[in-house]
Design a protein around this nucleic acid. Structure first.
Lengths: 200, 200
DNA sequence: GACCCATCTTTACAGTGTAAACTAGGCTGG
DNA sequence: CCAGCCTAGTTTACACTGTAAAGATGGGTC
């Protein structure tokens, strides 16, 4: 049965994750409240503890799930491209897409001290994203970052550029970029991200 | 008289700022506690309210002061260079210097929702940093970002790269860079930041 | 049909930020 | 010189937070 007002919620875990993301988006990481999440889900404030040990546990699970969607956003962009360079840049645009669409979640994933990085799920999800980055570098450069010094430089360079763009756009900083309308902004971002890659 | 245990603290405002930075560095933005700061300063938990309206006020003042030192870190690096390109890159290295030296403060300044950006001091301090960036772009490109489209692109590009590097290094992410020892890291950073600039 | 146990609630406690009332004491005006 | 004011601090109070422990509920299994 999928009734709504039962004692046993049915799938409280999923519901809590959903509400946690809403709470996060609304209040930000710093004002995130576990009790607030419980209230949203219409459940007692101690209920979350049963599914996630504590606030860190909930946020960690949320971040892990976030990394999955983060990866998907990059792959979605990449699917439309074939050449290594085009695919690399596309993944960067997907990276930025996600950050702009889910700023608070993005910040949680990359800049929060409340995550438990010993958690296997989070670690694995994060690792998959990093692996994609490595694969993209290798496809472009012809050498794996783990082996080649220049490839390592490319990896850091591309990552930093895309991450920096995301971070700045989230904080509403580069007014120059924000004010551009859709297509022009896309073109500007392509140009900028391209700079971080080795020349064609 | 500069005695220590008086009722009137002498310069509680400065002391609170000092202790607030310590608290921030130790606990991070998310676990920052106003009462903790008061305790560090050896003063009642409500004392800070008299100098800074509330937590946001204290953090805002701290960030404003931080932006001053942030600017100084960039100028210190620039002083050793003469050519526009060298000076631009140097400012970027100063940017990174500061972020690595004061990670929590840096995060507060750029990614905290607890700052009051209507505060004149904060606004002015932030503006001065932004002005330096603009001046560096103009010196290199020969056109002001406010006028020229390409200069605007350069500004965003350079800023994003340097900011992304800072953010990634703070979160201990690019192991590749962190493991390099002093001079090699410096060289790698120069190379990467250079990519974000228009070609020589 | 009785029991067990995962799931949720209640209750309790220490800690947080902020507001209001209270007090100490340096400074100024007469 | 001293009365009083007003700034700088304290005390008290309240609503809220996260977490722990104990109590209730009801679905599933023997």
């Amino acid at each position: 049965m999928v009734g709504d007002a039962r004692y046993h919620h049915g799938d409280l875990r999923a519901a809590l994750l959903r509400e946690a993301e809403a709470e996060l988006a609304e209040k930000g990481v710093e004002a995130f409240s576990l009790r607030g999440v419980a209230k949203r889900a219409g459940v007692s404030h101690a209920a979350p503890a049963h599914h996630f040990r504590d606030t860190a546990g909930l946020l960690t699970a949320l971040a892990a799930e976030g990394f999955g969607r983060f990866l998907a956003a990059q792959e979605a962009r990449m699917a439309r491209e074939t050449a290594p360079r085009g695919r690399f840049i596309a993944s960067g645009l997907g990276y930025i897409d996600f950050a702009v669409a889910h700023p608070a979640l993005f910040r949680l994933m990359f800049a929060s001290a409340r995550l438990d990085w010993t958690d296997p799920a989070l670690c694995a999800a994060g690792g998959r994203v990093f692996a994609l980055l490595g694969a993209n570098v290798e496809a472009l450069r012809g050498a794996a970052p783990s082996e080649d010094e220049m490839a390592r430089l490319d990896l850091v360079s591309a990552w930093a550029m895309v991450h920096g763009l995301s971070e700045l756009m989230i904080s509403g900083r580069p007014t120059a970029l924000m004010t551009l309308n859709g297509l022009a902004r896309e073109e500007a971002l392509r140009e900028i991200v391209g700079r971080a890659l080795p020349p064609q």
